[in-house]
Lab assay of single mutants.
Amino acid sequence: ELREAFAKVDTDGNGYISFNELNDLFKAACLPLPGYRVREITENLMATGDLDQDGRISFDEFIKIFHGLKSTDVAKTFRKAINK
Rank of each mutant, 00 (worst) to 15 (best):
E21G: 03
F6L: 00
F26V: 08
I63L: 14
A81Q: 12
T72K: 13
H67A: 10
L33D: 12
L51K: 10
N20F: 03
K84L: 09
T77Q: 11
A28H: 12
G55E: 08
Y16E: 03
A81W: 05
T72I: 08
R37L: 09
A5G: 01
F78I: 12
N14C: 05
R79I: 08
E43D: 14
G15N: 02
E4H: 15
D12N: 09
R3E: 09
P32M: 04
T11S: 10
K84W: 08
L31E: 10
Q53S: 10
G68D: 14
F26C: 09
L51R: 07
K70M: 15
D50Y: 03
D54K: 11
E61H: 10
A75K: 12
R79W: 06
G35A: 15
F26D: 01
L25C: 05
F19M: 12
I17E: 01
V9H: 03
N23I: 12
T48L: 07
V38N: 03
S58A: 02
T77C: 09
L45G: 02
E21I: 01
F6E: 01
I63A: 14
Q53G: 09
R56G: 04
K80F: 04
F19C: 12
E4D: 07
V9T: 03
F78H: 15
G68S: 15
N83I: 07
I63W: 04
A47R: 12
N44K: 13
E1V: 02
N44C: 08
R56Q: 13
L22I: 07
K64Q: 07
L69R: 04
R56S: 06
Y36E: 15
G49L: 06
R39C: 04
G35R: 11
E40R: 04
G35S: 13
D24F: 02
D50M: 05
I63C: 15
L69E: 12
K76Q: 13
R39E: 11
F6Y: 01
I65H: 04
A81G: 14
D60R: 06
E21R: 12
E1G: 04
I65T: 03
D12G: 05
F66M: 13
D10M: 02
R79V: 11
T11H: 08
T11L: 07
R39A: 10
T42V: 14
K76I: 04
G15R: 01
F6G: 00
K70Q: 14
F26R: 00
T48H: 09
P34M: 04
P34T: 04
A29T: 10
I17P: 00
T48P: 04
A47W: 04
L31S: 08
D12W: 02
P34Q: 06
K84T: 14
K84C: 11
Y16H: 06
F6V: 01
L69Y: 05
S71M: 11
V9S: 02
C30N: 15
E61V: 08
D73Q: 10
F19V: 15
I65K: 03
R3T: 04
T48K: 11
E43C: 03
G13H: 08
T11N: 03
C30L: 09
R37D: 12
L33G: 04
F62M: 04
L2A: 01
D54Q: 10
C30W: 04
F62L: 06
D24W: 01
F6K: 00
R37I: 11
F26S: 01
F78D: 15
Y16W: 09
D12E: 09
N14H: 08
L51W: 08
K8F: 06
P32G: 07
F26Y: 02
T11Q: 08
N23E: 15
V74L: 10
A81D: 15
S18E: 08
Q53F: 08
I65C: 06
A28F: 07
T48D: 11
M46L: 11
K76V: 10
L31P: 10
A47P: 04
I65S: 03
T42N: 04
G68K: 15
D24A: 10
P34R: 03
E40F: 01
P34H: 04
D52V: 11
I17N: 00
T77K: 14
F62D: 00
I63Y: 07
N83P: 14
I17W: 00
A29Q: 08
F78A: 15
A47T: 10
F59C: 09
S18Y: 04
D12Q: 08
K27H: 05
R37W: 06
R56C: 09
L33F: 14
F66D: 01
G15Q: 02
A28M: 11
S71L: 08
R37M: 11
E43V: 02
F62Q: 00
G49Q: 10
A29F: 06
R79K: 15
R39F: 03
N20A: 12
P32Y: 06
D50R: 11
R3S: 03
K80Q: 11
F6A: 01
Y36T: 14
F19W: 08
G35V: 10
A75R: 11
N44A: 13
E40W: 02
L25V: 15
Y36M: 12
V74W: 11
G68F: 09
N83C: 11
P32Q: 10
S71N: 09
F19D: 02
E43Q: 12
I41T: 02
E40I: 01
G49N: 06
A7R: 07
V74C: 13
A75Y: 07
D54L: 06
Q53K: 13
G55L: 03
T11C: 06
A28S: 06
R56L: 09
K8M: 05
F62R: 00
A47F: 06
V74K: 14
A7S: 15
Q53M: 10
L51E: 07
D10G: 01
A5L: 14
Y36P: 15
F78N: 15
F59K: 02
K27G: 03
N20E: 14
I17M: 01
M46W: 07
R79A: 12
K8I: 02
G15V: 00
K8T: 07
F19N: 03
L2S: 02
K27Y: 03
R79Q: 14
A75I: 07
F6I: 01
D12M: 10
K64G: 05
T42I: 15
L25H: 00
L22A: 02
K84G: 15
G35C: 11
F6N: 00
R37T: 12
L25Y: 04
G13A: 04
H67K: 13
R39S: 06
R56P: 03
Y36A: 14
V9I: 14
D60T: 08
E43K: 10
D24C: 05
A29I: 15
A75C: 11
D73V: 08
N14P: 00
P32L: 02
K27P: 01
K76A: 12
F62T: 04
L22Q: 00
Y16I: 01
K27E: 12
I63M: 13
P34G: 05
T42S: 07
F66S: 03
T72R: 10
I41W: 03
D52A: 15
N23G: 14
F59H: 02
G15C: 01
F19Y: 06
N83Q: 10
N14Q: 05
I63E: 15
F78R: 15
L51Q: 06
A47E: 11
D60N: 10
K64N: 08
F59W: 06
T72M: 11
D54P: 13
D24T: 08
L25D: 00
S71H: 09
G35M: 12
G13W: 00
G68L: 12
T77A: 11
I17C: 03
F6T: 00
E40Q: 11
N14K: 15
K80C: 12
D10S: 01
F62A: 11
G15S: 01
S71F: 05
G35K: 13
N23W: 06
R39I: 06
I65N: 03
Y16F: 06
G35Y: 10
C30D: 15
D73H: 11
A29K: 05
I17K: 00
L2T: 01
K64R: 10
Y36D: 15
G35Q: 13
F78E: 15
N23F: 08
A47S: 11
I65R: 02
D54F: 05
S58I: 00
F19H: 04
L31N: 12
I17A: 00
E43A: 08
A29M: 14
S71E: 14
S18H: 09
E21P: 00
S71W: 04
V9N: 00
F62K: 00
K80E: 13
E43M: 06
A81M: 09
T11F: 02
F62G: 00
K84D: 15
E21Y: 01
K27T: 12
L2C: 02
K80M: 07
Y16P: 00
P34Y: 02
L33C: 08
E40L: 03
L22M: 08
F59T: 02
F26N: 01
L51S: 10
F66L: 15
V38F: 08
D54E: 12
R79T: 14
D50K: 15
D10R: 01
L33Y: 13
